Amino acid sequence: MADVDIRVLSVGTALPGPPVDNAALAARFGMDRLWQEWIDLFIGTRFRHLALDLETGAIRCSLADLATTAGATALARAGITAGEIDLVVLSTATPDALMPATVNVVADRLGINEVSTIQLQAGCSGAVQGLDVARKLLLSGAHRTALVLGGEMLARFYDLSIDLAKLPPEQLVNYVLFGDGAGAAVLTSNPAPGACSLVSTLTRLEGLGRAPGATLEWFGPGERGERVAATEDYKAIEEHVPVMAARTVTELLDGLGWRPDELDYLLPPQLSGVMSARITDHLGLPEAHVVSCVDEIGNNGNGLVYFQLERALPRLAPGDRAVGVSIESSKWIRSGFALERR
């Protein structure tokens, strides 16, 4: 099946609620102007979308809600019916429940049944892991058309009663980096003239002997105690992610026999506005057009790759090539993919 071409027919995305800017976030938590300036200068993320109503504390939607909307949009854009899907893959770090799996709830809502479903528990690299799993299964001939989804519902970890001024940086940063959202793509091994080809995917665990750079906890009744739900070692991320991203790009290009100057588009890791720009500079691909959106929508983890793809695919002309990179700091996973409009 080596000569089979896996094509991306469409992408759909979904965001909850209106964008929340840094001024609104600072006002809600009673922080001063210096805090807002710190976000602008060191984080570089201007907006995020939250499923949480900051005034009332009410959760407005679930991950299944967002993924269903994104999936329905992707199916409609591809001109594909639910009955034509024979594989559904969803990646997330924040499923709605441990059981039932969110992927099955989404499939049910979309009218997809009697198919293989897979849910991957993963951080930011999960979006590429989902594309990787789907691509390999399509290449095997076991399936023909897949709906691949990813997203996060991080609003549930917001504590609106907390005094942010008393938080250490590894906890404070989570209140400004992240947002909610979901995306979806339709992949197929069927002929699809003009569609963009997903020519390569890779994921590599590099966490041997290295402390996690991010944690996200699940708690049962009576279990939490003094444990913190989410932490982020931003300094370790600043140190390791650019290097891991560069290795990923090199491995993708070498595997395909592409030269760096033949790359038309780059979809860099999307931790924050500042970090994405720093990583892009480190990669040294000045001729590649950069597709980045984290400064506009916040870091919604497994959803971000789909938001980048939604922006990139319409721009790729025949013969254009693109590489995307996603790095997960929880146990240091690097992942990437390559696209070509053939």
Rank of each mutant, 00 (worst) to 15 (best):
T203D: 07
A185Y: 03
P191I: 09
A195W: 06
L205M: 10
G209V: 08
G183Q: 04
G194H: 12
R204N: 05
C196R: 14
S189V: 08
L208K: 10
L202K: 01
T215A: 02
L216I: 04
N190S: 13
L187M: 12
V199T: 14
P212M: 03
L208M: 10
R210L: 15
A211Y: 03
L205D: 09
G209A: 06
S200Q: 06
G183K: 05
A192V: 12
A192W: 08
P191T: 08
L205G: 12
G207R: 12
E206A: 15
E206L: 11
C196P: 06
T188M: 11
L187Y: 07
C196G: 08
A192T: 10
L187F: 07
A184Y: 07
R210D: 10
T201P: 01
A192Y: 05
A195R: 12
S197G: 11
S197C: 13
P193D: 15
V186I: 15
P191W: 11
R204V: 08
L208D: 14
L205T: 07
N190V: 11
A184E: 08
T215S: 06
T215Y: 02
A192Q: 11
L216F: 01
E206T: 15
L216G: 02
C196L: 10
A214H: 02
G207F: 07
A184P: 05
T215F: 00
A214D: 00
T203L: 01
E206R: 13
P212S: 01
T201Y: 02
A195Y: 12
S197Y: 05
A185Q: 07
T188F: 11
G183N: 02
V186D: 04
P193Q: 12
R204A: 10
N190D: 15
A185W: 07
A195V: 12
L208R: 13
L198Q: 10
A195L: 13
P191M: 09
G209Y: 08
S200W: 00
A214N: 01
G183W: 00
G183Y: 07
A192S: 14
A192C: 06
E206H: 08
G183C: 06
E206F: 05
T203R: 02
P212G: 03
V186T: 06
V186K: 02
A192N: 09
A192P: 11
A214F: 05
A185E: 03
V199L: 04
L202C: 05
L205V: 08
